[in-house]
């Protein structure tokens, strides 16, 4: 329960920090860190326009998407704080739940009959399909490494101490970070600040959403960032640490992660659109290296 509270409390500041870092590097005047929060609050006060082409799918999709992300947050532990829900192979449920949300958002975008949203929808479908194996291989390596198979058990028993396990930790963080970027359609897959619909992925999918629905979609993005930030922080937090230190380092990692995302977005150009699939498959390749490393660590592959 505690972990859910911390994940949700850090979520609203995530996008704020990213914006702040980006503004700093672009030498622009810094927006308030609460700016995204104000934006959403304003949306909650607004009415909505629904396209005449759409059906109930379009109305229910943002709710399903939001709830799926919220539910996904229930599974995530922080250090030795157990997630709200935890069972064997809960990461499978986690991944499929997020997929359900995405499924609904994709068909909602197609529901509008707009060619732009169709573009976004089908890119989202392709990218999230390509990223799926990377996540599963990563989790499989962790399961193998820690001899456990639930999120809580995985991270509780994740002791990064030997040389090879540093590689494991770093590679895992790298893969997770870019999964987060792809899940949230940020650079280098997509550029949140572009204004050309032809090259957008996620932004263009929600062109027709407004008011309450759009607010929920924004909040879902925050929570998604926060979820992946928490997963990353679990690699650093060790469960022998006192609770205060665990929580302190959780906040630190969350902020650092947001900062890194801002930094990357400031300095990295987006990929050429047609190179995106290759680039995403590259993450799976890194995950495979990770898996092999784990096989060496667990002495299933014996090197002489």
């Amino acid at each position: 329960m505690m972990s859910l509270f911390f994940i949700l409390i850090t979520a609203p500041f995530f996008v704020g920090i990213i914006l702040k870092v980006k503004a700093k590097f672009a030498a622009r005047k810094l927006p308030s860190i609460l700016q995204p929060f104000y934006d959403v609050a304003r949306l909650f006060k607004k009415g909505a326009i629904y396209s005449t082409t759409t059906s109930f799918i379009f109305k229910i999709a943002p709710l399903v998407y939001f709830v799926s992300v919220l539910m996904a947050a229930l599974f995530i532990p922080i250090g030795s704080l157990k997630g709200f829900l935890s069972f064997n192979a809960d990461f499978v449920y986690f991944a499929y739940l997020l997929a359900f949300g995405k499924f609904m958002m994709i068909i909602a975008a197609m529901d509008t009959g707009s060619s732009f949203e169709g573009m976004g929808a089908n890119r989202e479908a392709l990218y999230s399909m390509l990223i799926e194996p990377a996540f599963f291989i990563l989790i499989a390596s962790l399961a193998l490494f820690t001899d456990n198979n639930s999120f809580y058990g995985l991270f509780l028993n994740l002791h990064i101490s030997t040389n090879l396990s540093y590689i494991l930790g770093l590679a895992a963080i790298y893969v997770l970070m870019y999964i987060a970027m792809i899940e949230n359609s940020r650079s280098p897959i997509d550029d949140a600040k572009t204004h050309l619909e032809l090259t957008m992925v996620h932004e263009v999918m929600v062109l027709d959403n407004s008011g309450f629905d759009l607010a929920l979609i924004h909040i879902a993005t925050w929570i998604k960032f926060s979820i992946y930030g928490t997963l990353i922080s679990n690699f650093i937090i060790q469960n022998e640490w006192p609770l205060a230190l665990q929580i302190g380092s959780f906040f630190f990692v969350q902020m650092a992660f947001a900062g890194v995302v801002g930094l990357l977005e400031s300095f990295r150009a987006r990929n050429k659109l047609e190179k995106n699939p290759q680039w995403i498959i590259m993450l799976s390749a890194i995950a495979i290296v990770l898996f092999l490393t784990t096989l060496i660590i667990t002495q299933k592959i014996i090197l002489y």
């Binding site: 499924f103 994709i106 068909i107 197609m110 194996p133 599963f136």
Partner: peptide
Amino acid sequence: SGLAIIGGLAIFCFTKVFSIVFLG
């Protein structure tokens, strides 16, 4: 990884079918 890819592709396929047949 095979099962994960199959799952992802199934989602790709059924978002396509459902949207093309029933939506828009």
